[in-house]
Structures are given as C-alpha cells and as structure tokens.
Amino acid sequence: MKILVPVKRVIDYNVKIRVNAEGSAVETNNVKMSMNPFDEIAVEEAVRLKEAGIAEEIIIVSIGDKGAQETIRTAFAMGGDRGVHILTDKNTEPLVVAKILKEIVVKENVDLVILGKQAIDDDSNQTGQMLAAILDWPQGTFASKLDIDGKKIKVVREIDGGLETLEMTIPAIITTDLRLNEPRYASLPNIMKAKRKEISEVNIDDLKIDTKNRLEVLKVSEPAIREGGRKVEDVDELIKMLKNEAGVI
C-alpha cells in the first residue's frame, strides 16, 4: 500500500499570534514555523502502518515556499520515505490544495491519503473532504482510531455524544483527530539517516491545473479585548444597571 501524507508548514503552536501592521494577515516574519500538529499525527499513523507491514511507501507532500522543505525533512526523520515539494510563494486555499493533491494521488498511484483534519493557521477543515469529493473516494474524517484489514478500513470518529465507527474500502481519505496517536520526535540519528531521502521539487505553475484562489481575505483583526466584570452592592443596583447601562430589561 502506498500512503500519501500532506504536511503544512504553519506558525509554531507555542507562538503568540499577532496580526500584521496592515491588518491583512497574521505576522509571519521572524516567527518560528513548524509542522501543523495534526499533520504530525498523520505522519505518525502512516509510519505505524509501515512498521506494522501494512504500508510499503510513505510519500510526503508539502505546498509552500522553500521553507516547506524543512517540514518535509522533519517528516522524513519521523519515517516518511520520499517527498514532493510543490513550490509557491502564494497562499493556497483548501480547494487548490485538494486539486494539487489529486494530481499527485493519480500520478503516484496512491492507495490511502492521511491528512490532518485541519491546519492550525486557518482552521479550514476542508481539504480532506474536498479531496475525497473530487476523487470520489470514501472518507473517514476526525479519526481517533484506525484499523486496516486487507482492503477494509475501520475508522472510529469522535462525534458529539459518543463514538462512531465507519467501515470503508481502500482507496480512501482519512483525516486525523488529536487522540489518534502521540507523534514521535524527529531524533538526531533519524534526521541524519533522512539526508539520503529525496525531495522532488515541482513549481506550482508547471502543474496543468487551475490554482487560482476563489476566496479573498478582506481583513484580519485581533479578538476584541474582554472587559472585566463589576461587583454590585445589592439587587437594586443590579436591576438599575441592567435597565440603564446594559439595556436588557
């Protein structure tokens, strides 16, 4: 089985997010970047499937600027086998990403795609679903447990009020939830071994697909600062305030 794992380079989850001076985007200059945590879980799951003898090859793909190579190399150190880097300086929205991934899935004859359920930068939570739709493959989203037996996949999903178990056949799309596994660290010996693994670089413009974004970000702003509460002396004062200041009664 061949598994494709897309990984996204995002602002590190420990960094305090700031809006840029123009209010057009989140500030990314001089900010620590790392692999989207849900994608780490996806890489880990693929590596475990390979260790269990279920998968033969894990292809890592990332879309982005030169820095994306570092993210691919991190996935290599965790156990990915080879990489595809789609080079672009532009932001790519979920539909564009899904279309690019479809190209790779078809070209590489992939049997299973494991993706993070969402990226922690834009929280879109769409790419996996869109990819399933355009490939017309079954999807198991928000997976918290995965069992593969031959061509059959059992996916346990955490939903409101309990667990839901789905069964589907390969080829399929899986998106990972937080509790699927605990990803391993990229160890130094494995980082060094990963040096020999290859990344093929493809310019986004060389793909024969429409990569035009359909969405436009109009404005990015910080959440409103929450005002502190106030203490009142007695019920009368409370009623007065609800009437006069809050205007709710």
């Binding site: 420990n14 790392s34 570092e70 190399r73 991190t74 660290y185 990229a186 980082i191 060094m192």
Partner: peptide, 20 residues
C-alpha cells in the same frame, strides 16, 4: 557537522522534548 536545516529540525525536537 550537521547542516543547518537538519540542525534546526533537531533543535526544535529538543525544545519540544524539554517542554513536553
């Protein structure tokens, strides 16, 4: 020595390991 890109990956592993 380890090249810079690989070193950055390892440094980030250590940062996480210490914290987590």
């Amino acid at each position: 020595a380890l090249d810079n890109q690989d070193f950055v990956i390892f440094l980030s592993t250590i940062e996480k390991f210490v914290k987590e």
